[in-house]
Amino acid sequence: MLEAKGLTVGYTATPVFEDLSVSFEPGKITGIIGPNGAGKSTLIKAILDLIKKQAGDVKLDGQEVSKVRQKTAYVEQRANLDMSFPINVFDVVLTGTYGRLGLFKSPGAKEKAAATDALEQLKLSEFKKRQISELSGGQLQRVFVARAVVQQADVVILDEPFVGIDMKSEADIMEILKLWRDQGKTIIVIHHDLNKVSAYFDDLVIMNHGIVAAGPVDEVYTRENIGHAFSADLGNVLFEDKGEA
């Protein structure tokens, strides 16, 4: 169980959220939704201890996340990367072994085999020598999911993995996420496409500068909660045909 308690985070004087508590269960795919600027990315960065927290702590099975980093994998937004970097697909996936290897040790045959397997799993074998800017959005996203496969983490957190990618890649990635879930991993996905919420997620966290609602999708994904976090209009449009008024 991944648990955040009493988190307060803010880049400036006014915090993005205050005293936020939320937990994520193993064996579940949990979606995080909320309007732009609601603090979704900030929340997962705080969970992964990538940014400073003003207050609160995050524990994975009772241990501070910052002490068990090997158990987490983070698939960040693709837009943040330098696509012209001289690196090919295989070497990107291989970087997934770096954490386990520890300082100054180079990847060997075992690590390379793991990268080859992950590439195959995400149907990327034919692209392994390509420089990363020579890929489509969907192929590139699969590369970063392949890297997470190599990391063999218990918790995998993905930030907007389905933005700007083709449907086939989206389905391939979803397949991996479901496989991970069935292996008992904790999967967390920041997501923006509200239409697929019920199809993709077991649990849902709705955010808007704090937790609006959290729990199983069928309990949480309601007109009231969406209306509260986004706007009443959006809630009405989404749930219009479901007779949930």
Binding site: S66, Y74, E76, F85, T95, Y98, F104, P107
Partner: peptide
């Protein structure tokens, strides 16, 4: 030679490097 892998990952993807504890 010694820190090649660390130099590569911090140059290419610093957030990822931080996320695994570098």
């Amino acid at each position: 030679v010694i820190a090649y892998k660390e130099l590569l990952i911090t140059s290419f993807d610093e957030t990822f490097a931080k996320s695994y504890g570098l």
